[in-house]
């Protein structure tokens, strides 16, 4: 009998090879531009402007140094300060709300949650323009605090939704065991719920940081001299030579790449949850 058993493996291996090719192609599509831009960020101008040097062979830190001297050093510092403030503000405000959504049944809960989801979708950049008028009056214009407050508005719905889903994933029985053995709600939260949620909350904080770090429109509208890094790139670095721009993109993606590596486990589930 000419068994299908013999032909099946051949087709199977052919499929495997084609499939592997597609996987490699997909990964290359994502990785190649990142690698190239990083290589160019560190390449000498001679290598970069030589049309024969597709992959630069000589590397230097001078592009980064020139960029930092242009004002990127301060802008980077500003970005870090704004991002940290945003994380602190949005967690102070958002964590209790997330806990309330996760652990209480109350009137109007569904509508409130829907409102938060709606606000998550709201194009927050539009608030920047009218905010300028208010900020001028309050003396917040061109301040890092002002940018952080605007970024907090953008991050807050995300923080509420994500912390809520993190708290939901802590089994309620563990909390109830806390109550039964004599803890009150506050103690239960700090001794049981919070420690169990810590890895997830850390990941959420990282994403909040990145959200602020990456935001450009509000930062560019609300600042003039105290630029954050993306705003600085948009307004100043675009006039610089190409390799300086690549240096700028390297500094921009560096924290993102580090954080992706640390928190990669949470990336898919987090976006999966918060965009639903």
């Amino acid at each position: 009998m000419p068994g299908p058993g013999e032909s099946a493996p051949i087709r199977y291996y052919l499929f495997k090879i084609v499939f592997a090719g597609i996987v490699i192609l997909s990964c290359t599509w994502i990785l190649l531009p990142i690698i190239i831009s990083i290589l160019y960020a560190f390449s000498t101008p001679q290598d970069f402007y030589n049309p024969k040097e597709v992959i630069p062979l000589h590397f230097t830190l001078s592009n980064i140094q020139k960029l930092l001297a242009l004002g990127a050093a301060r802008a980077t510092m500003n970005s870090i300060i704004v991002a940290i403030m945003t994380v602190i503000f949005s967690f102070i405000l958002g964590l209790p709300a997330g806990y309330a959504f996760a652990r209480f049944a109350f009137k109007g809960k569904d509508s409130l949650k829907l409102l938060i989801i709606g606000l998550r979708m709201f194009p927050m950049l539009v608030i920047a323009i009218p905010l300028v008028t208010l900020y001028i009056r309050l003396g917040l214009n061109d301040t890092l605090l002002g940018v952080a407050l605007a970024h907090t508005t953008m991050a807050l719905p995300f923080v509420i939704l994500i912390t809520s889903s993190i708290f939901v994933s802590v089994p309620v029985e563990l909390e109830e065991a806390g109550y039964v053995f004599g803890l009150d709600r506050k103690q239960t939260f700090f001794r049981i719920t919070l420690p169990l949620s810590l890895p997830g909350l850390t990941a959420a904080a990282i994403f909040t940081f990145i959200m602020s770090w990456n935001e450009v429109f509000m930062a560019a509208v609300l600042t003039l001299t105290n630029r954050t890094l993306p705003a600085f790139i948009l307004t100043s670095a675009m006039a610089a030579p190409d390799i300086i721009k690549f240096a700028a993109s390297f500094i921009m993606i560096l924290p993102a790449l580090i954080f992706v590596f640390i928190a990669r486990k949470y990336l898919v589930s987090m976006w999966g949850i918060t965009v639903k």
Binding site: M1, G3, P4, G5
Partner: peptide, 13 residues
């Protein structure tokens, strides 16, 4: 091993 339906070898079908 093999799976046979009647006389037909269906192992890899």
């Amino acid at each position: 091993g093999r799976v046979l339906f009647g006389d037909k070898d269906v192992t890899y079908l």
